[in-house]
């Protein structure tokens, strides 16, 4: 069963075409990895799927329901989606625990006690049990991003969107974040993620899509797109990533 179908999506900012005739299918329990240079449209695609930006053509379908229907209640759709941002975006005025339980309590109607015990369970599982009462500015970047991931999965989304979740981190902190994502993949979480970490992409991806100027120009399993790319653009991009020491 397909959790997500992106059909011929087009997105413009003014006269700039950011996504063009872009289609994507994400079956349940799979991870689709978006790679490509900055500005190729990866983040925009994720923002469109999360309905943070309106698309200019095509449609996006979640569990068989078109979510780009203008009459749809976006708040209801977003309850089924989780999103993690490059810059963490934790709420600085709330403790870690309050960050995580905000949506379960106020959006999903979970009782406070239950939301807190579920949050504690997740925090403990990812070695953050002692940070529950801390405020975000007391945590390292890696810890903040792990909290942000826990916050997004605390509501048990159907689909998790991860937008370059390690790009703002020190190299030594990258792995603690990626290991959470690997764990979630193992749990069977369906996800779409944009990343520059090719080694990681190879480990978790069921499908890799290489984006260039808002189009998916090459797609397939990681063994093909990352290890043995066919198109010269893909080869060139991977070469540059490799030179930057990210492979």
């Amino acid at each position: 069963m397909n959790v997500l179908e992106v059909r011929n999506v087009r997105k413009c900012f003014g006269t700039d075409v950011v996504l063009e005739d872009l289609s994507l299918t994400v079956p349940e329990h799979t991870a689709t990895v978006l790679i490509g240079a900055s500005g190729s449209g990866k983040s925009t695609l994720l923002r469109c799927i999360n309905l943070l930006d309106d698309i200019d053509d095509g449609s996006i379908v979640l569990d068989g329901q078109e979510i780009t229907d203008p009459a749809i209640d976006v708040d209801v759709i977003r309850r089924r989606l989780g999103m993690v941002f490059q810059s963490f975006n934790l709420f600085p005025h709330m403790s870690v625990l309050d960050n995580i339980t905000l949506s379960p309590i106020w959006v999903h109607g979970v009782s406070k006690d239950e939301a807190q015990s579920q949050a504690m369970e997740l925090l403990k599982r990812f070695d953050l049990g002692d940070k529950a009462q801390q405020f975000p500015d007391r945590l390292s970047g890696g810890q903040q991003q792990r909290v942000a991931i826990i916050r997004s999965i605390a509501v048990r989304p159907r689909l998790l969107l991860l937008d370059e979740v390690t790009s703002a981190l020190d190299p030594v902190l990258v792995n603690e974040v990626l290991s959470i994502v690997r764990d979630l993949k193992q749990d069977g979480m369906t996800m779409v993620l944009a990343t520059h970490e090719m080694g990681f992409a190879t480990q978790v991806a069921d499908e890799v899509c290489f984006l260039e100027s808002g189009r998916i120009v090459e797609r397939g399993p990681a063994s093909q797109v990352i290890s043995n790319p066919q198109l010269p653009q893909t080869q060139e991009f991977l070469k540059r990533v490799h030179e930057a020491g990210r492979l």
């Binding site: 976006v74 708040d75 709420f91 905000l102 949506s103 999903h108």
Partner: peptide, 28 residues
């Protein structure tokens, strides 16, 4: 705006975003 985006992507409505995320930070 990224604070609003984070709140909305968690499913919070406009008014919940205002109440729990925007106003506490703004007033401070």
């Amino acid at each position: 705006p990224s604070q609003r985006a984070a709140a909305r992507s968690l499913g919070l409505s406009q008014s919940q975003t205002l109440r729990f995320v925007v106003l506490p930070q703004a007033i401070k």
